[in-house]
Computed example of a mutant assay.
Amino acid sequence: MGIYANINFKEVSEVRNRIKNLRIANNISQAELGNKVKASNQAISAYESGFRNPKPETWQALADYFNVSIAYLKGAYSKDEILKMLQEAYKKAPHYGANSYYQVRNEISFNVDLVMIAHGFIEPNEPSINGMLSQSDVNNFEFWKQNFSFIFESVAIAWLISRPIEVSDDEILKAINEAIQIELSKLATDTRERQDKDGYWLESPSKYLSKRQEFINDHITQDGTLEF
Rank of each mutant, 00 (worst) to 15 (best):
E214F: 00
T225W: 10
R16I: 02
F152A: 03
A39R: 14
E14P: 02
D113Q: 07
L62T: 07
F9C: 04
Y65Q: 04
Y200D: 12
P164N: 10
F150A: 04
Y200W: 08
I28M: 13
V115W: 07
D169W: 06
F141V: 12
Y90M: 04
A188D: 14
A76M: 05
N67P: 02
G199R: 14
G34A: 07
I122C: 04
T225M: 09
E11V: 11
Y102Q: 13
A43P: 01
L83Y: 05
I176Y: 06
Y77F: 14
A188E: 15
N27D: 05
Y47V: 05
A89I: 10
L133N: 00
I151A: 00
Q87S: 03
N67D: 12
S206A: 15
I108S: 09
A25C: 02
D218T: 12
S13K: 15
D198W: 12
K84Y: 05
F110I: 10
Y101D: 14
R52I: 01
V115G: 03
G199L: 07
D223E: 15
Q60E: 13
L173D: 05
E32Q: 15
L160S: 03
G50E: 11
G224E: 10
V37A: 03
A89E: 12
S149L: 07
R23Y: 07
L86P: 00
F110S: 10
Q42R: 15
N41W: 12
L73M: 01
N8W: 03
S69R: 12
S168R: 14
S100W: 13
R105V: 01
I176V: 15
E107F: 03
Q222R: 11
M85Y: 06
E81K: 13
V12W: 03
D137M: 00
E178A: 06
